Computed example of a mutant assay.
Amino acid sequence: MDKVPLTIAGANKLKAELEELKTVIRPRIVEAIATARAHGDLKENAEYHAAREQQSFSEGRINEIETKLSNAQIIDVTTIDAKGKVIFGATVEIEDLESEKKVTYQIVGQDEADIKQGRISVGSPIARALIGKEEEDVVTVKTPGGEVDYEILSIKYI
C-alpha cells in the first residue's frame, strides 16, 4: 500500500484520539457492558446492546486510526528546504485576481483537510495547481464555475 502524506500536527491529533480511545473510552465501555450484564437477561437488555454497539464503533475507529498511522508518511515541513516553492504542508496566501479576495490555505493530507480551518487536501484542484509554484506566480484553477486565476502572495513553512 502506498504511503499517505500526513503533517506532524495531523499525526499528533490522530495519536491523541487513539490514546483516548484506548485508555478512556474502551475501559468505560467495558465497565458499561459488565454493569449491563449484571442486570440479567441480555436478550432484552437495552443498556447491554447500546454498550456493545459503542464497543463496536470504538474498536472500528481504533483499527481505522492504527491503519492510517501505519500507512502514513509523516512530513515535517520545517525540515525541508523548499527554496520558496509551495510544497506539502506549506501555508499559502493567495488572491483571486478577479474578486481580489484573499484566502490562506495549508496544504495537508486528505484525512486532515478541513476547509473551515483553512486546510485543503493535497489532492484538491487548488493544491494541485499551487504545488511547485513560487510567490508572485499566477495559477489557474479549473472550478465547476469556470477557471479562476490566483496570485500567490506568500508561502510559509510552519
Rank of each mutant, 00 (worst) to 15 (best):
A90I: 06
E147F: 09
L97K: 12
E66V: 04
R26P: 12
R37P: 09
T91Q: 11
I75V: 13
R128I: 14
T140Q: 14
E47W: 02
I131T: 10
E93V: 14
A34Q: 13
S56R: 12
I152H: 02
D137M: 14
I94T: 01
D111M: 10
L21K: 01
G40D: 02
E98L: 09
K133L: 08
G40Y: 04
K142V: 15
K13E: 05
L153E: 06
P144S: 13
S70D: 12
I120C: 10
T7S: 14
A9T: 11
L6W: 05
K133R: 15
E64S: 13
S124I: 13
I152W: 01
V138L: 12
P125K: 06
N12I: 00
D96G: 04
N63S: 13
A127T: 03
I75E: 01
E134I: 08
D76E: 06
A9I: 08
L153R: 10
I25Y: 12
G10Y: 00
A129V: 04
V108A: 05
E135I: 14
Q54P: 09
D111T: 10
S154Y: 04
V122E: 15
I8N: 12
K13M: 06
G40F: 03
D41T: 03
R37S: 11
P144T: 11
K102N: 06
E53I: 11
V92L: 02
K85A: 15
